[in-house]
Each structure stands twice: as C-alpha cells, then as structure tokens.
Design a protein around this nucleic acid. Structure first.
Lengths: 66, 66
DNA sequence: CGACAATGTCAAGTAAGCTTTACAATCCGC
DNA sequence: GCGGATTGTAAAGCTTACTTGACATTGTCG
C-alpha cells in the first residue's frame, strides 16, 4: 500500500511531530507510515483523509496484488 | 466505525462464507466485521470497496468522536 | 419433524498497528 | 563547528486484526 502522506504533510509545512499531534498518534507512527513500514488502521486513514480533505483513495493506493 | 457490509452482501445474495471467499478472509472475520466487533485493515477495506465498486467512505462511516 | 445451510460465538494462537523510551543521524542557521 | 530541530531506528509491551477449529443457535424447506 503506497501513500502520499509525506508529500501532503510537507505541502502544509508541518513536521512529522506536528502531523502526529493533529492525528493523535505518536511521531514514530507518522514516520513509520511515511516510510511504508505498515498501513494505518482504517480509523486513522479516515483521520488523515479528514485532515487533508481528500478521499482515502486519493491518499492511499493499493499496490498490485493487494 | 459503522459499515454497510451486511446490506451490500445481502444485496448481492451472498452468504458470509461467499463474501469471505471473495475477500480472501475467514467466514468468522466477515461475521465479526458485520457485527462491528472490529474494523478491517486498510487493505481489506480496499478489497471490499473494489468488490462492491464503491468508495471506502460509502461503505464505512466513522462514528462521532473518531 | 428432520436435515442442512447460514449465522453466531468461544478459545487459543499469530501478526499487524501503535505506544513509550531512548538514542543516532541529518539538516540548517548562526 | 556548535546547537537545536527534524527525522530515523530500535526494543519491549499492549491492543487489535486476523486465523483455525469446534460447537450452539437460528433459519428454511422438503
């Protein structure tokens, strides 16, 4: 699962810690998501979508075979 | 997190086992999702959206406070 | 009623998502 | 080059998302 979190975050001029605060997760979680270490839970995906005012499908793209 | 899985599944005339097969998860997982015992992973949410040809936001609705 | 499909549920196990703490590496402005 | 902010990473631990296997309950239809 690919995602555009880093790009969206940087477009807002936020640090990972800033984003973490707004999402109510740890900074390490934001870092792990951006680096693709794992996928967010569905509720967290919704929070991201809400924050960036984008549909989930526009932030996350299932990789082929998924 | 509320979801419309049961309604969508029944509209297709599928049993929980049928849907489980198509999603590549166990029947118990489909049952648990329909009964709201937990939320699906993001990849599984994408598979559901693909199957029913609907955006994720139309299948899942974050409850107030989420 | 009896059989069989569909659904609900429990227990025990594994894997994934997330936390805290802590420290190393990088980047930048002074 | 130093200091502070940002990012990367690791370990240990907890919770949630799944699994298989088994069994109880609830249809429904001859």
């Amino acid at each position: 699962m690919k995602n555009a979190i880093r790009e969206l975050r940087q477009a807002k001029g936020w640090s990972q810690a800033d984003l973490a605060l707004r999402l109510d997760v740890s900074r390490q979680t934001v870092n792990a998501l951006e680096r693709g270490r794992y996928d967010p839970s569905l509720p967290l995906a919704f929070r991201l979508a809400g924050l960036f005012a984008l549909p989930i499908e526009q932030i996350f793209q299932p990789e082929r075979g998924d």
